[in-house]
Design a protein around this nucleic acid. Structure first.
Lengths: 187, 187
DNA sequence: AATTGCACTTGACCTACATCAAGAAGCTTC
DNA sequence: GAAGCTTCTTGATGTAGGTCAAGTGCAATT
């Protein structure tokens, strides 16, 4: 449960009384490597904080997977847009490695939002971060060629190469696995 | 001032007392057609609600403009990620037509967030909408070819063609003006 | 109403990256 | 530890859509 409090307190400070109420809403969920956590067309029921493991979020189109993000230790995880809108997910959330999540259900989170302004604030601040991150990603996808996108990711998150298969990183960068491989080979 | 209350109340309900305090923070800003509202490298100082006119938000790279969104009547406007993070904007916000905005400054909005949980809630709900919309856009850009993206926009927002130059729509759809023109010609 | 300047169109050509294919190198699993 | 996956590499070929260029049309400015 500590990762939950630590993650929330990256944004706001909770009193012990608040924390007690908040903590009661979370449950641990465990997934083995490769397991689908949330499937396409399923409404995302959980907002999660990652205790252990790496997950990827992707969608499928004409039999091709396009990865749009990863989640790992200390960060949040889930199909955020499906959770927010409570509509069927276009994405799949999958455990890349053995995964332990702390999760809170939609109704519980809404209740906490209503009950504690500080949680509403947490929700807003987290979303602000998401929005800024997605804007950065959008600019990068549009302005940079395959090579520059590769270089940038390697500079910013070289550890990713250890955590997830290259094909998923390639897809995340919006290029084929072959192109990714060739960029790596070039030195 | 009515558009402000109407827009906010699409998300939350304000008591008259709350509205009085909130209303006091906004000011009217007028821009003529073509004027730059927020320039690159400038920190976005305002969050705005559109009273009149159309704006586009774009960035420049190697002398090429890439349009990433539009704003018009009753919606919000501004360089959201720069405003949120209070860091220099990578984007330009420009008045496509004669524009009247109601705007609130960063400090004032932060104060309202602190003062009124209902405003915090408004902020969260608005961001949720942004996140869902950007996720949809991302999926469309990745899964669909130029023609399908064109068809989809024409089905969803045909009015856009009357409001902004085709080159901006083309750019918004992630294609050259020439490709856009050719897609229109085909019937 | 002539001038200037952008937006749009249309055609010819080009290129970054995808796709296809086939082999090599890691992993699981029994 | 051999069999069978899946991932990764490397080469050959294909293509959607970009870029360049040369008009055409229209609206604003004089």
């Amino acid at each position: 449960m500590e990762p939950v409090r630590a993650t929330i307190e990256r944004y706001v400070v909770l009193s012990d009384a608040e924390w007690e109420e908040v903590a009661a809403c979370w449950q641990e969920r465990i997934f083995q490597k490769g397991a689908v956590i949330t499937a396409t067309d399923q409404v995302e029921a959980w907002f999660s904080i990652v205790k252990e493991g790496v997950q990827r979020i992707y969608f499928e189109h004409d039999g091709v997977e396009a990865c749009i993000g990863f989640a790992y230790g200390g960060s949040w995880s889930g199909v955020y847009d499906s959770f927010i809108s409570q509509t069927p997910s276009r994405f799949v959330l999958q455990a890349v490695s053995h995964t332990v999540l702390f999760s809170i259900g939609y109704a519980d989170l809404q209740r906490l939002y209503k009950q504690f302004p500080v949680m509403e604030r947490f929700g807003r601040l987290l979303l602000e971060e998401v929005v800024v991150a997605r804007a950065t990603r959008e600019v990068e996808q549009l302005t940079m060629g395959a090579q520059e996108r590769y270089d940038r990711l390697m500079a910013r998150s070289p550890h990713l190469l250890q955590l997830v298969p290259q094909k998923d990183i390639a897809s995340y960068l919006g290029m084929s696995a072959e192109t990714f491989s060739r960029l790596r080979a070039r030195r």
